[in-house]
Design a protein around this nucleic acid. Sequence first.
DNA 1: GCATAGTATTCAATAATTGAATATCGTAAA
DNA 2: TTTACGATATTCAATTATTGAATACTATGC
Lengths: 180, 180
Amino acid sequence: MRGNINPFTSSEFALLGFLYEKPTHGYDLHKLITDPDGIGLIWNVKMSNLYAYLDKLDKKGFIHGTMQPGDAHPTRMEYQITAEGKSAFEEWLKSIVLHPRDFRQEFMLRYFFLLKYQPDNINSLCNKQHQECTKWLGNTTLQSSHVPIEEKFRNSIFQFRVTQIGAIIQWLEWIKSQTN
Amino acid sequence: MRGNINPFTSSEFALLGFLYEKPTHGYDLHKLITDPDGIGLIWNVKMSNLYAYLDKLDKKGFIHGTMQPGDAHPTRMEYQITAEGKSAFEEWLKSIVLHPRDFRQEFMLRYFFLLKYQPDNINSLCNKQHQECTKWLGNTTLQSSHVPIEEKFRNSIFQFRVTQIGAIIQWLEWIKSQTN
DNA sequence: GCATAGTATTCAATAATTGAATATCGTAAA
DNA sequence: TTTACGATATTCAATTATTGAATACTATGC
C-alpha cells in the first residue's frame, strides 16, 4: 500500500500494552497475546506477524529493542517501551472508539488493559463511550427515519445498525452495573 | 500470502452477483457496487481493487472477459459469468453465515441479492440463519456459564457475544415480520 | 478548437501475510 | 552418552493485497 503513513492497528497497541508492564521479547509476547483467556479471545496473532509489528513499533520509536546474548536461551531481542510509546499507549487507553464496526475489538482491547492497569478508570471510559454510542444511535435513527419504506435494503441496513448499536449500549450498561 | 488457495471474499461474490444479471465491464461494475443506496452501504470497493478481483474471478473460471473494441467508448473488457460462476453464485446465495463476526457484511450481501433476484427465498434463508444463530446463542451461553465470576475479562467477552447474537436474532425476526 | 469532466484500464510501488527455514537449549529415553 | 524431540526464538523469501498515479480515449460545453 503506497503512501500509507502507518495507521496504527490494534494488535500493535496490544503489544505496546504488554510492554507497558515490562520489557519482553517476541516469543513471550506471543504467548501473552494469544492467551486463550486474554487477548486470544478477541484476536489471533501469528508469530511472524508479531515480529513484523515489533519492527514497525520500533521504527515508529514507540519501543526499543536490545539484543540479549544467550546464556540459558538463544540470542533474543528484548523490547522495551519508550517514553513516547508509553504516552501513546496512555492516550490510546483513554480514547473512545469512533465507529461501531470497530467496537468489538477496539473497545475490548482497551477494556482488557484497563482491567489490568487502571480498573478505576473503567467506569469513566464506559461513560464516555456510552455518550458516543448514544450519538451514533441518534444519528442512525434520524437517517433511518428519512428512508422511504419502499427502499427495503437501505431500511434493513439502518434497522440493523440501530439494533447493533442498541446491543453495544446494553453491554456498556451491563459492564457499568458489574463494575460498581 | 503464500499457499493461499483463493479463499473467496465477499466482494468477489458481489461482482459475481451483478454479472449474474448481465455482462458488464469493470467501470460500470464499480458504479453498481458503490451505489450509496446499495452495496455501497456495507462496502467500499476501490476501482483498482475491483479490477484485481475480476482477474481473480477470471482465473478461477467464474467469469470470462472479452475485449470490446471501442466505437463509442474506449476499448474495454466485458465480463460475463460462466456456468460455473452462475452455480457458485446460486449456491452462495442460499448458504448461511457461519460466524457472527461475518454477519454484518456477509448476510447483508446475500440479502441484497435475494431482494434483487429471489425475494421469495428471503424468508427461507432467514429461517435457516435464525436456526444457526440460535445455535450460536446456545453454545455461547453455555460457555459463558462455565466462566468463573472472578474472570472479568472472559466473562465480559462472552456477555458481549451473547448480546451481539441476540441483536442479530432480533433483526432477523424484524426482517421476517417485514417480509410477510 | 480547447479545456474539462467522465469513461476505462493498467501498473509499479508498497504493505501485509504466510509457511518454512534456521538455530539454540532442555531433557528424557535408549 | 548420544540422540531424539519438543520448546524456545527469530528471520526470510515468496506470495498476495492494496494503493495512488499514470495512461488514453470520448463527449460536452464554451
